[in-house]
Design a protein around this nucleic acid. Structure first.
Lengths: 194, 194
DNA sequence: GAAAAATATGACACATATGTATTTTTATCT
DNA sequence: AGATAAAAATACATATGTGTCATATTTTTC
């Protein structure tokens, strides 16, 4: 495959992303993507067999770009509290965001593909990596006397489950910014922060 | 509508439930339900316009039957701890259950209908009512010296978010019984139980 | 037990999506 | 420029789903 093809494939994936953001996963058809990309039916089939394959590429691109959620917020003089607060603030935005999010499509995709191996499950990988980062962060905070926490790993996992819970409730039932704040405050109080 | 019609409608809803359990929400067509019920196309359309309408009925039936989650476990001599443990055990089953569950269909349905009013959103109603019950339970536990808890309402809500998180993670990425246990233990420790 | 009303049926017209095979266009090489 | 290869477009055959309507069957009513 030539350079041109690589470019076009990327173009398709990026354009398809918008379609998935708009419609979720299941409702998207090859036709939708053909039209969004303004290419021909046969043209798309030259690169992808179905929407699952395309979505998998979208996720791959996505995970490459979002792997450094924390790296932006980690500066020399930032404390663990600072970084955690920043992270939670980002999460809050993500939880409340209605438009311009892949959240729903991602859930739908995994509903359809709960046969994926641990390796191929980007969602799981991201969850686990986030747990590790939070755990590390709490540990540092405990060392510095910012936090009080017996079981850093457990707390980190717990925080991630709460965030997942908030996300799905927000998607299915709606959630006010206040409700999210309240919950995030609750989390922070647990590790002894005001 | 005669008695016979009421019966048939109920039959359709109950049969459709199985289809939704099997296939989730989005993948289910009127045709699927027609075939499952072994009735005619026109016959089904006599009762329902589309799958959303049918699913709404399934949910209604469901919520009528499951409103008394706790009532079974509340006996004269049961302590708050007993009841909470029993509830969490039930939840664990629900979280891990792969077959015979509407969980996925419910999520899919609300993804498609996030325009539902607070009243019509069974998911939300159930969440809120569960929070209330747990809160009450914790309060009783605190009075009896079984639990230590400053903010019963907050804790109750937090527990529910964690349960939602576990549920969605289980559905999308898979979760081991041990992982669920670990998390439930974590919850219990927070309110001072061994 | 015949007429009327209520239910149920299945074929049909329409719509939308899929995947492929053939043709057309565009790019590449000498 | 002309031959060849690669990429893209289009038309087609197939499949699946929707909603309706004329017809048939069952049930109710008198």
């Amino acid at each position: 495959m030539g350079e041109k093809s690589v470019q076009k494939k990327k173009y398709i994936v990026e354009t398809a992303r918008k379609v998935f953001v708009e419609k979720g996963f299941k409702r998207v058809t090859m036709k939708d993507i053909v039209e969004a990309c303004d290419i021909s039916r046969g043209g798309l089939y030259l690169y992808f067999e179905n929407t699952s394959q395309i979505f998998a590429e979208v996720l791959k691109l996505e995970s490459e770009e979002t792997d450094d959620v924390f790296s932006n917020s980690i500066t020399e003089d930032a404390t663990a509290v600072d970084i955690l607060l920043l992270f939670l603030k980002e999460q809050k935005k993500e939880i409340l965001r209605k438009k311009d999010t892949l959240t729903q499509a991602i859930y739908e995709y995994y509903f359809d593909n709960n046969n994926l191996s641990r390796k191929d499950n980007v969602l799981r990988r991201q969850f686990e990596s986030a747990v590790k980062v939070i755990e590390k962060l709490i540990e540092i905070g405990v060392e510095n006397g910012e936090f009080v926490c017996e079981d850093c790993a457990g707390t980190a996992r717990n925080i991630m489950y709460v965030l997942e819970g908030l996300k799905i409730v927000s998607q299915t039932s709606g959630l006010s910014p206040d409700a999210v704040d309240r919950e995030l405050m609750y989390i922070l109080q647990q590790i002894g922060t005001e």
